[in-house]
């Protein structure tokens, strides 16, 4: 499955991604870092599609629910 979308010509230095991952405890080979960098660039572009809508005052769904005593999640029945 191809996660994310290919929409960006910008690049990120794979060495930076490799270093960041190492800081987080993930050891990547140079080859893995190259692949992950490409995936990351694509996936970071995913939020661009959200800009077509105004999300400013929308409370994210799970956060809204985690604060409830009743954690019964009901899909679209409660908007």
């Amino acid at each position: 499955m191809s996660y994310g979308r290919a929409s960006s010509d910008e690049t990120l230095d794979a060495a930076v991604v490799q270093a960041l991952a190492k800081k987080m405890g993930l050891d990547l080979s140079a080859e893995e870092a190259e692949m992950l960098t490409a995936l990351l660039m694509n996936q970071l572009a995913a939020v661009e599609s959200f800009n077509a809508f105004d999300l400013q005052d929308i409370v994210p769904a799970p956060i809204f629910r985690l604060g409830r005593v009743d954690t019964d999640l009901r899909g679209a029945s409660d908007d």
Binding site: A46, F53, I58, V59, P60, A61, I63
Partner: peptide, 8 residues
């Protein structure tokens, strides 16, 4: 932001 989009 993805969860906001989901709520929307």
């Amino acid at each position: 932001a993805a969860q906001q989009a989901r709520s929307l």
